[in-house]
Nucleic acid binder design. Structure first.
Ligand SMILES: [Mn+2]
Ligand SMILES: [Mn+2]
Ligand SMILES: [Mn+2]
Ligand SMILES: [Mn+2]
Lengths: 219, 219
DNA sequence: TTATTTTGTTTTACTTCTCTAACTTTATAC
DNA sequence: GTATAAAGTTAGAGAAGTAAAACAAAATAA
């Protein structure tokens, strides 16, 4: 049984691996706000438990078992976020910090029940995939809105940044998952976009924002 | 901010005070399955935080502030149990261990939302009162079923023991809160009772069981 | 009332998780 | 290709929470 602290290291390492490929001690240190020597010793400990491949001065890698255990924590996190939004009436900007705690609850039954009540959802309120009970994750092919061109019709499927500020920004513009968006124009100078969706006929979004919005093309 | 460990000490001390009046280091030690020297040092620590009155060799007492903080953890525990039963479909025998963990979640909003979704319940699935947001608890006047006599008509309002085994025993006999029970007879030899309720016309309950069932008299 | 048992405390020590300081290795700049 | 900077490790230490051993006080029994 992994401790809460070990679980947070596993999860952070898993997420960083997906975000940036190669993960160094320094990356994990910054992500967790824990000093490098502490991270080094925890990596050795997790290596001893067979969850991490550790070699001095080399990038950090989860073992297959480590990936599974990390994915199962992420599963609990994302099921929780979905439950909070769908069954308890929270906004998608309010759920991360609560899920960060509830993901450490030890009760298979509790999460199985959540899953069932939610109808076995495939993704969380931010569009991230929910790993299955075996820790397998299936990633959908998304495109960044910033990679679209004028005239493209797309559907908003996920957000990359899930900070409260960013999600509130999207709330203020009535941007939510599932929405159909038409790219009206792209400004070559700063790559900002003018888009049309729902009742908004001409909303301007900066490149910084568009990079964080994941979409699929509407046939 | 109290740690999870401190919270469990406060809660145990609060509960023991109610159950048995005077609480000694040894009682708390047994309740928490933690050795006496550890309890002594935690009591000194909590005394330092103004939550416990500690004097060597004297019974342990919570301060007023300690009582409030303990009651607020118990509030979270009981709201959680109620939520699990009412909103997630758990049985009353399944919820204690999950609540034991969720009671340590730090999020006022999370518990406020639970409370609201439940319609501000006054008691948990076992009939125990839910403290209010200020840590005030109001105890109803209950009577033990074992103190009733033949011919009494009562309503089952709470259970004292909330172990899974006891609650399953009650489930097997279709005994649940709110049920109206008629005391048919009391056996003088072992103080067992024959009772009548719902579709059960002659169920025999041992004194040990009757002592743990709290009732109010049906007018 | 004295002996014995139980309860409680003190001291020492272990585990987990964290840090700072000092040093080493690797990467980057010139 | 050295010099400098950045990243990583080692060593030492501290806080939180725990227990074992030794001792002291209080309760109980004889
Ligand atoms: Mn999240
Ligand atoms: Mn977490
Ligand atoms: Mn309970
Ligand atoms: Mn608890």
């Amino acid at each position: 049984m992994n401790s809460l602290v070990e679980e947070n290291y596993l999860k952070a390492l898993f997420n960083l691996s997906i975000e940036s490929g190669q993960v160094n001690v320094n990356d994990l240190s910054q992500r967790l706000d824990i000093k490098m020597p502490t991270v080094t010793s925890m990596m050795k400990k997790l290596a001893g438990k067979g969850l991490v491949h550790y070699e001095s001065y080399k990038p950090l890698r989860l073992t297959e078992q480590g990936k599974i255990e990390a994915a199962l924590i992420i599963r609990k996190h994302r099921l929780t976020e979905m439950f909070l939004v769908e069954k308890m009436g929270f906004g998608w900007e309010q759920v991360h910090d609560i899920a960060e705690q509830i993901e450490h609850i030890h009760s298979d039954l509790f999460f199985a029940k959540m899953d069932e009540l939610l109808g076995f959802p495939k993704s969380d309120p931010h569009g991230s995939p929910i790993p299955d009970r075996n820790g397998n994750v299936t990633w959908k092919e998304f495109k960044k809105l910033s990679d679209c061109k004028a005239g493209d019709r797309v559907r908003l499927e996920a957000v990359i940044n899930t900070s409260e500020e960013f999600l509130k920004f999207l709330n203020n513009r009535a941007l939510s998952l599932g929405l159909e968006v038409l790219v009206v124009s792209v400004e070559p100078f700063d790559r900002s976009m003018v888009v049309k969706y729902a009742k908004r006929t001409a909303e301007t979004l900066s490149h910084t924002v568009c990079e964080r919005l994941l979409v699929v093309e509407k046939a």
